[in-house]
Amino acid sequence: MTDRDADFTAYLQARQARLLRTAYLLTGDQHQAEDLLQTSLAKLYLAWDKVHDRGSVDSYVRRIMVNENNSLWRRGWKKREFATDEVPEGRPVHDRYDEGLGAAVWDVVQTLPRKARAVVVLRYYEQLSEAETADTLGISVGTVKSQTSRALAALRQRTPVELSPSHREGHRESDREEER
């Protein structure tokens, strides 16, 4: 094995578990995530010599993953999942640990348009700054802000009122008031 391949293999072993999780959040499907990750890592391998700054490899592969996931042609053979403003009806939203709030949030994330979803995953899972997110996605910081704002608005609109953080916070406040 060449030094180059050994170098790449070390990166592969160290980072693939984390990158798979990001791929899963982008696609919402385990099999698609595995395929997306393999294709993205293959493209990273082809570009390995060009990625001189090893500190930025994660950023580079994240960009590949997002772009690959946004490819229109890729969607044809994928399962027929798509972005919509409507939460599917009849979906169970109950989750024992939080009375269904987590499932409701995940439903909203899964129905965001792909680019907005990528912004949300990079900002709130990868914990990237707005500037880093913009750089990864090749869009302006303003676009990141507006996509984030729209995603949070969708979250507020589509999370059942009784489960929303503000509603629950309000209830806790009134409970505390009553206790006093």
């Binding site: 999780r21 990001t22 899963y24 959040l25 709030l101 987590g102 949030v105 995940w106 994330v109 949300v120 995953v121 709130y124 899972y125 914990q127 949070l152 979250l155 953080p165």
Partner: peptide
Amino acid sequence: LLSTELSRRAE
């Protein structure tokens, strides 16, 4: 809430 749920789904 978003951060928590994404991490929980991914873990």
